[in-house]
Amino acid sequence: MMPVPDPHPDVFDIEWPLRVADVDRTGRLKFDAATRHIQDVGSDQLREMGFEETHPLWIVRRTMIDMIEPIEFKDMIRLRRWCSGTSNRWCDMRVRIDGRRGGRIESEAFWININRETQGPARISDDFIAGLQKTTSVDRLRWKAYLKAGARDDAVAVRAYPVRVSDIDIFDHMNNSVYWSVIEDYLYDKPELVAKPLRVTIEHDLPVALGDQLEIIQHEYPAGSTDKFGTDLVDRTVTTLTYVVGDEVKAVASLFSL
C-alpha cells in the first residue's frame, strides 16, 4: 500500500481512545471495530474539507486491511487518512491506524460517490477532486475485482449468519462493518492468524437487506494450491468467505498471512 505522505498538510490526522466495544476478549482491536473507525474518520475528513453537504453519501466497494501488529485495549490511536487514487465518481482512500504504545493497521478502501436521488454513482465535483489529488498523482482509477466467489459443492463449511435490525444503515442495507464481524467469527479460534501480520480483503457485489437469509461459504486453499491468487501467495494458505443469499453472491472475503 502507498506509504503515508508524511509530513503533508493534506493528510487528515486525528486521535481518539479505544473503547471496550472496540476490542475482543484478549484486548485486540477487532477488524469490525477498525472498519467503523475507518468509516468515522472518513466522515470527519469530509466535514473538515467542507464537502459534507455536497457529497454526503458514499458506499464502499472494497476494503483491504493489513493488521501489521495488533493494537491493544486502552491505547490512544492515531488515524491518518488521505487519497491514493481518483476518478470522476470514485476514489481510493488510505487509512493508517497507529497505537501510541505500538500496533499498526494499514487499510485502503475503494469508495463510490452516490447521488441522493438516483442512488447511483455520481460525479465528484472538480473542487473536491482537486483537494483529493493533492496526495496522489493517480487520476484514472479503474475498478478491478481481486476476488472470486466460492461454490457450495466444494466448501469446507456453509453456515447461516442472521441479519439483525441493528445491522442496517441509512441505505437500508447491512452496514459495511457488519461484514467484518463475520471475519471476527472466523478468527475466534485461530489465534495463530492474528499473532502475525494478516491481510483481509472484502469486496462487495450486492447489498444485504433486512430479512435476507445470509449464508457464509468457507473455502480453505493450502499452500501449493494458491497460485490462482497470485504467484507471491503460492507458499501460504488462503481462506475465502463468500457471502450469499440463495444463489446470489453479495460479497467475497479473503484472508492470508503477510
Rank of each mutant, 00 (worst) to 15 (best):
residue 14 I to F: 06
residue 166 S to F: 12
residue 168 I to M: 10
residue 71 I to A: 09
residue 94 R to M: 14
residue 34 A to M: 11
residue 211 G to A: 05
residue 182 V to N: 10
residue 31 F to M: 11
residue 91 C to G: 08
residue 96 R to P: 00
residue 234 V to Q: 02
residue 218 Q to W: 08
residue 36 R to V: 12
residue 130 A to Q: 13
residue 104 R to H: 15
residue 225 S to C: 09
residue 53 E to G: 00
residue 235 D to P: 00
residue 5 P to T: 00
residue 60 V to S: 05
residue 153 D to F: 07
residue 207 P to F: 04
residue 44 D to E: 07
residue 191 P to S: 02
residue 234 V to D: 04
residue 241 L to Y: 03
residue 99 G to M: 03
residue 187 L to G: 01
residue 212 D to N: 08
residue 117 E to D: 07
residue 84 S to Q: 12
residue 157 A to G: 05
residue 114 I to E: 07
residue 36 R to H: 05
residue 192 E to G: 05
residue 55 H to D: 14
residue 139 D to Q: 10
residue 53 E to A: 07
residue 57 L to E: 11
residue 110 F to G: 11
residue 89 R to T: 06
residue 92 D to N: 13
residue 187 L to Y: 05
residue 145 A to F: 01
residue 136 T to L: 06
residue 92 D to V: 04
residue 59 I to L: 14
residue 60 V to A: 02
residue 64 M to G: 15
residue 170 I to R: 13
residue 94 R to G: 14
residue 56 P to H: 01
residue 102 G to V: 08
residue 64 M to W: 08
residue 46 L to K: 05
residue 8 H to S: 08
residue 216 I to A: 12
residue 46 L to C: 02
residue 129 I to G: 05
residue 201 T to P: 10
residue 194 V to S: 14
residue 182 V to G: 13
residue 204 H to N: 01
residue 40 D to Y: 09
residue 227 D to V: 08
residue 18 L to R: 07
residue 167 D to W: 04
residue 191 P to R: 07
residue 34 A to P: 07
residue 79 L to T: 00
residue 98 D to A: 13
residue 27 G to M: 12
residue 13 D to C: 09
residue 178 V to T: 14
residue 140 R to H: 02
residue 232 D to T: 13
residue 136 T to F: 11
residue 59 I to T: 03
residue 75 D to A: 06
residue 125 S to W: 02
residue 165 V to F: 14
residue 257 S to T: 12
residue 201 T to C: 08
residue 216 I to G: 09
residue 2 M to N: 10
residue 86 T to D: 10
residue 85 G to C: 07
residue 8 H to A: 05
residue 195 A to D: 12
residue 10 D to W: 00
residue 236 R to L: 00
residue 245 V to H: 08
residue 31 F to T: 02
residue 210 L to C: 02
residue 1 M to C: 03
residue 73 F to A: 14
residue 185 D to F: 03
residue 158 V to D: 02
residue 89 R to N: 09
residue 194 V to H: 02
residue 73 F to G: 06
residue 227 D to P: 01
residue 234 V to F: 04
residue 166 S to P: 01
residue 118 T to L: 00
residue 251 A to M: 03
residue 126 D to P: 06
residue 105 I to M: 13
residue 111 W to S: 11
residue 132 L to G: 07
residue 25 R to P: 00
residue 191 P to Q: 04
residue 141 L to G: 01
residue 65 I to V: 15
residue 118 T to K: 01
residue 173 H to R: 03
residue 160 A to V: 11
residue 94 R to N: 13
residue 14 I to V: 13
residue 122 A to Q: 06
residue 141 L to R: 07
residue 46 L to I: 07
residue 127 D to E: 15
residue 128 F to K: 05
residue 223 A to N: 03
residue 47 R to H: 14
residue 23 V to Q: 12
residue 110 F to H: 15
residue 95 V to L: 10
residue 11 V to C: 05
residue 121 P to A: 09
residue 6 D to T: 05
residue 114 I to G: 06
residue 247 D to K: 03
residue 223 A to H: 01
residue 106 E to Y: 08
residue 222 P to N: 06
residue 79 L to D: 04
residue 232 D to I: 00
residue 97 I to A: 15
residue 10 D to N: 03
residue 237 T to H: 04
residue 199 R to H: 12
residue 56 P to I: 09
residue 81 R to W: 07
residue 191 P to N: 02
residue 156 V to Q: 14
residue 100 R to V: 15
residue 22 D to W: 14
residue 53 E to K: 08
